[in-house]
Amino acid sequence: MKFGRLLISVSLMIAALVHLTGCSSGKKAYERGDYFDAVMKSVNRLRQNPDHSKSLETLKNAYPLAVEFYETQAKNEIASNSNFKWKNAIQSYNAINQMYEAIRQCPGCMKAVKNPVNYYNEIGPLKEKAADESYNAGIEALMKGNRNDAKRAYYNFADAQNYVPGYKDVIEYLDKAKFEATLKVVVEQIPVPTRYSLSGGFFQDKIEEFLHTNYTEQTFIKFYTPEEAKVAALPYVDQIMRIQFDDFSVGNSVLKEKEEVVTRDSVKVGEAKVDGKTIPVYNTVKAKLNTYRKEILSSGLLSLIIVDGKTNGVLTHRKFNGEYVWVSQWARFNGDDRALSDQQLALCKLREQQPPVPQDLFLEFTKPIYNQLIPSIRSFYQSY
Rank of each mutant, 00 (worst) to 15 (best):
A79E: 13
A79R: 12
S80H: 00
N81I: 13
N81R: 14
S82W: 12
F84K: 10
W86V: 09
W86T: 12
W86L: 01
K87A: 10
K87T: 15
K87Y: 10
K87Q: 12
N88S: 06
N88I: 13
A89E: 06
A89C: 03
I90H: 03
Q91S: 15
Q91N: 12
S92P: 05
S92E: 06
A95R: 14
A95E: 05
Q98L: 11
M99Y: 07
M99D: 03
M99C: 02
M99I: 07
Y100L: 01
E101Q: 13
E101Y: 10
E101N: 03
A102C: 04
A102P: 04
A102T: 07
I103L: 05
I103Y: 01
I103A: 00
Q105H: 15
C106A: 00
C106V: 08
P107S: 06
G108I: 10
M110C: 07
M110P: 05
K111I: 09
V113I: 15
V113P: 01
K114N: 02
K114I: 09
N115M: 06
N118M: 11
Y120K: 13
E122N: 11
I123V: 14
I123R: 01
I123W: 01
G124L: 15
G124W: 12
K127R: 15
E128V: 14
K129D: 13
A130M: 08
A130Y: 06
A131N: 02
E133V: 09
E133T: 06
S134C: 12
A137R: 08
A137W: 06
G138F: 08
G138L: 05
I139E: 09
E140Q: 08
M143P: 04
N146Y: 11
N146K: 09
R147L: 04
A150P: 11
A150G: 06
A150D: 06
A150Q: 00
A150N: 06
K151M: 13
A153D: 04
A153R: 02
Y155C: 01
N156K: 11
F157L: 04
A158T: 00
D159P: 10
D159Y: 14
A160H: 06
Q161M: 09
N162C: 06
N162S: 15
Y163E: 02
V164F: 07
G166V: 01
G166E: 08
G166C: 07
Y167H: 03
Y167E: 05
Y167N: 02
K168H: 09
K168P: 11
D169F: 03
D169A: 06
D169Y: 00
D169L: 08
E172W: 10
E172M: 13
E172Y: 12
E172V: 10
E172S: 14
